[in-house]
Amino acid sequence: MDLKRRLFALRIKWESVRTEFGIRALLDALCAGCVYATLAFFPLFLVLVELMLLAMHRLYTFTVLLILAALAFVYVANRLAAYALKLKRPAHESDAAGLFRLHAYAWMTVVLVVGLLFLIVFIPAMTA
């Protein structure tokens, strides 16, 4: 029952954000967040991968660092998207930041699950 109520509240939140900004502005903000987060995190990912190649005996350590970097990337992309929306309409009333935070948490869960799969299943299978 509680979950149903939460989902309903989330839907109301989504409707109010969509009505206030429109789908086009939301997608534009998300795109901006992704582009700038990619620019910021791309060198970090490259650094980690190149260091990992030099220290394969620390494969698990670098995999954990890559997972943390991916989580940070998702979070920053969504924060930037929320900020871009705020810049579009500084006096907005709907809770766009809250919605993007939830969006970030959802994607961070996906990243975490995929990362754990690598740590627990794929890497042990590849290096056994």
């Binding site: 060198p43 490259l46 650094v47 190149e50 190649l53 030099l54 220290a55 394969m56 005996h57 494969l59 290096t127």
Partner: peptide, 16 residues
């Protein structure tokens, strides 16, 4: 991070 140079690096790897 991208420019490659004509050297070779040997680093520890793993067991198969």
């Amino acid at each position: 991070l991208f420019f490659q140079i004509d050297y070779e690096i040997d680093a520890p790897g793993g067991l198969t």
